[in-house]
Computed example of a mutant assay.
Amino acid sequence: MIFGRKGRERFRDAVTAFETAVRERDGDRSQRALRDLYRHFDGAGQHEAAEAGPRLAALLPELPPGPRGVVAVAAGACVERGADAGACAPYVFDGLAGTLAAAGEFCARWAVTGGGEFPEPEPGDPAPDVVDRVGPDAAVGWWTLPQWEMASVALLNHPRVCTSLGGDRRARLLEALAAVREASGHDFKCLAYALLVLDDEPLVVLHRPTGTGYALRMSGIGDNFQLHTLLADALVGGGHVPGRAPSAQEVAVCRDAPGQVPTTGSFNLVAPDGAWVWNEGTPADIPVVDGVRLLVLDPPPYARGWPAGRFFPGMTGDLRLERPLDAREAEHLLARCAPAA
């Protein structure tokens, strides 16, 4: 591995060589330059990675489906080193949409050609028997979907990307992903959760034991474990409701500090219809009532602990208490909520 100025220069040269070969449609040179790009990536500095990310992303529409996923991962890795996620996003999410469509076709053809256990995507090209069974485009779609998941999650760690993606496009991606997950039984959980992250989202919380309510706003929260700890900090730690307040370290790792630390639950999260809102889910599971997500907090039915932290370590989480509800407003909302199932 070559570090320092020489390493940075070799990475920069590899990016330029790859870009030139792709523009000139020279497959052999493109493959060699791509290998060089990956070989010298660790030696690249932040400036070189920031410069390379948008350039690599812009090449995605010009690449064949197979190498396209590999280059998307490289663009995502550049974003993790400081490249402009917003500049890369249009190309990466166009590629993700196309790959999800191809993976959906793979699932359909796999079912009508005998079904059975789905093959695990592995490094390299799809197995010849898989290609023969479903066709090359569908096979590559299934094979490269994990690569597009990695690239997309790297971009979705940035609030600007979440916001710019737009509700309609996000819904279409989630619908296509849900179809693949259901048909294949494969999880793709990181991609699903990243697409579900809410930004600057209002949340009304009702604390049933005290009859009080609170208006909050949340951003960058990957799962309800994280939300649970931040709620306990805002409401118990803030002196609004009784219970166990998380420590400063537990809160910090749920916001922007690295690592995980043990914590204990303070509430039972419940939907207005009485259904439990599981910690294993996401804030997007909380139902919308009259245009705002509405969550009820009950006493925990049993002691439960977990590692406090963030589902997406690169994503900053935030939950802000905006105001307590007045007593009449809280009472009105609670009267509409069913007891916990």
Rank of each mutant, 00 (worst) to 15 (best):
A97V: 07
R12P: 06
A111Q: 09
G82V: 10
R208Q: 11
F18R: 00
Q226F: 08
I221G: 01
D326W: 08
A341S: 05
E9P: 06
P301R: 12
A252R: 12
V253I: 10
A192M: 11
A271C: 03
E175F: 13
H40L: 11
G45V: 11
V241G: 03
V251H: 00
M315P: 00
L174H: 05
P119N: 07
S266N: 04
A52V: 15
A179Y: 07
G239R: 07
D129G: 10
A308T: 03
W306M: 07
S30M: 14
A57G: 12
D298Y: 10
R5A: 15
R336Q: 15
V180K: 06
V79N: 07
W142V: 09
N224L: 00
A33Q: 10
A52D: 10
V15E: 11
E62T: 08
L319Q: 02
L227N: 01
L177H: 04
E322P: 08
A178Y: 03
D223N: 08
V79M: 08
F312D: 01
E322G: 11
S164Q: 06
F11Q: 09
P258D: 05
A171H: 11
R25F: 13
A87W: 01
A183H: 04
R12K: 13
R323M: 10
D187R: 15
V70D: 11
S164D: 04
A49V: 14
V70T: 14
G66T: 01
Y193M: 08
E201I: 02
P283L: 00
P67V: 13
G274C: 00
R304F: 15
P283Y: 03
E322V: 15
W110C: 00
V71T: 09
G45E: 12
P262W: 06
V289A: 05
L156T: 08
H332S: 14
A127K: 13
M1H: 14
A275Y: 00
A341G: 07
Y214L: 04
A232C: 11
L325R: 05
A138P: 01
P67Y: 10
L155C: 03
G141C: 13
G259W: 02
P246H: 09
W306N: 03
A139I: 06
V289L: 07
A248V: 13
V296H: 03
G124V: 10
R172E: 15
L230R: 02
R170Q: 02
A252T: 07
T16F: 12
L156R: 02
V251D: 00
C107S: 06
F118I: 15
Q46H: 12
V205I: 12
G222P: 06
A151D: 06
W110M: 01
Y214N: 02
A74I: 14
I286W: 01
A14S: 15
G53H: 12
T212Q: 14
P307R: 04
D42P: 07
D200L: 12
A103H: 08
G69P: 04
L319Y: 03
A52M: 15
G237N: 02
W278D: 06
D273R: 07
N157L: 04
A102S: 15
V112T: 05
W142Q: 05
Y38L: 13
E80V: 09
